[in-house]
């Protein structure tokens, strides 16, 4: 009963916070509403005995949403929402599509006879996950490593305005022309 109460409160709060993301004017509020939505969905995950994944959602999403806030403030013209303005297109169509998708998914969730597993969950789901990562599903981690490597390199290529050649000059021999000296190296 107590678990059910916690689930309902957190589920309603998660959806409400998710909806608030697109309703509030302030970009800071929008970002932290999204973070609230993630934290509230982490609680139902904890209720499913997934202690590791639930806490991990809080950990990763806090860091990602704070970074998100940084970019929201950098790119949005009106980050604090002090002047009312909207940056939306085709809200009616989007709303109709979303409601239709929700109805289809909800009908699926309620009507599909989901298979039930009578076996109890493993004693330590984190251990199960570790064994899977290091055992049969090693491919997941290998692919992840390459994807993250590609993300980091292409992120640097796309994002830095001044690469090596801009800093050191064409022959790479000058002293770097940095506004602020870094902590390591020249």
């Amino acid at each position: 009963m107590a678990e059910w109460t916690v689930f309902v409160v957190c589920a309603v709060a998660a959806v409400a916070a998710g909806a608030a993301v697109f309703r509030v004017d302030s970009m800071a509020r929008a970002t932290f509403a999204l973070l609230a939505s993630f934290v509230f969905t982490a609680v139902p995950v904890l209720l499913l005995d997934l202690a590791y994944l639930g806490v991990l959602i809080v950990l990763m999403m806090t860091m990602e949403m704070v970074v998100m806030a940084v970019f929201m403030i950098m790119f949005m013209m009106n980050p604090a929402g002090l002047m009312p303005m909207t940056m939306v297109h085709n809200t009616k169509g989007a709303l109709a599509i979303s409601i239709a998708v929700f109805c289809v998914l909800a009908a699926g969730a309620l009507l599909v006879p989901w298979p039930r597993e009578s076996a109890p969950p493993p004693a330590d789901p984190t251990l199960q996950l570790g064994e899977a990562i290091m055992g049969d599903d090693m491919l997941v981690m290998m692919v992840a490593g390459l994807v993250l490597f590609a993300t980091m390199v292409s992120g640097v290529v796309l994002a830095t305005g001044r690469g090596r050649y801009d800093r050191y000059g064409d022959d790479l021999r000058g002293r770097p022309d940095d506004p602020i000296r870094g902590g390591v190296g020249r």
Partner: peptide, 28 residues
Amino acid sequence: DLSIGVVWFNAMEVLLWGGMWLAGWGAN
């Protein structure tokens, strides 16, 4: 003594990122 106590500590300490940024932002 949670089975993932280390991750828990990590997650709680990272909450300060959001808290400190908001403490700076909110004051205008």
